[in-house]
């Protein structure tokens, strides 16, 4: 259980929530929990921080004064910047998608027949992104060590030359 990716699904529509949860549960490497409100998701994240959250944009169709998706997204990204949030909405308006990206959503999925497949692809893209980011970080570290090594070598050569312990090359 410990090596599974923890995923939270937040949607106030029970059918939508169950369908997404069931679909993602087909993949054994995920541990999935679902919540009807953003407030419950935030409370659960304080106990166990998920790596990925699928978050509905409109979370107040059942409870009118419930936090909406954007507010939950802002709070999640503020507290856990490493967490990836995929927004889900029935609205296919570009300004809604742009708005969610502005607040740090990884992807934006429009509810409908293709949405479950898109959710699966979003998971794959998150993995690929983090793997690439890991490789880039390792490369950056390697280049930093190499740079420091070269610098130390130059300092050593200059020091040895100044002490007359080695001769300067002809072109020097």
């Amino acid at each position: 259980m410990a090596d599974k990716t923890l995923v939270y699904v937040v949607d106030d529509e029970p059918l939508q929530r169950d369908m997404l949860k069931d679909h993602l549960s087909k993949m054994s490497k995920y541990e999935i929990h679902d919540f009807p409100t953003g407030e419950e998701c935030l409370a659960a994240a304080k106990v166990r921080i998920p790596q990925i959250v699928f978050l509905d944009y409109n979370l107040n169709s059942q409870v009118r004064d419930a936090m909406d998706g954007i507010d939950v997204l802002k709070e999640l990204k503020n507290i856990y910047p490493e967490m990836e949030v995929v927004m889900i909405s029935g609205q296919d308006r570009i300004e809604v998608a742009v708005n969610t990206m502005k607040y740090g959503a990884f992807d934006y999925i429009v509810k409908g027949e293709g949405s479950f497949l898109r959710a699966e692809k979003a998971m794959f893209n998150i993995y690929r992104y983090h793997r690439l980011q890991g490789s880039a970080n390792r490369y950056k570290k390697l280049m930093t060590f190499f740079g420091i090594g070269m610098l130390l070598m130059i300092i050593l050569v200059i020091f040895l030359q100044s002490q007359g312990m080695i001769n300067a090359p002809g072109w020097y």
Partner: peptide, 10 residues
């Protein structure tokens, strides 16, 4: 209405 819409599609 918005919440019900995608469900009808399924």
């Amino acid at each position: 209405a918005h919440a019900l819409k995608p469900q009808l599609g399924y």
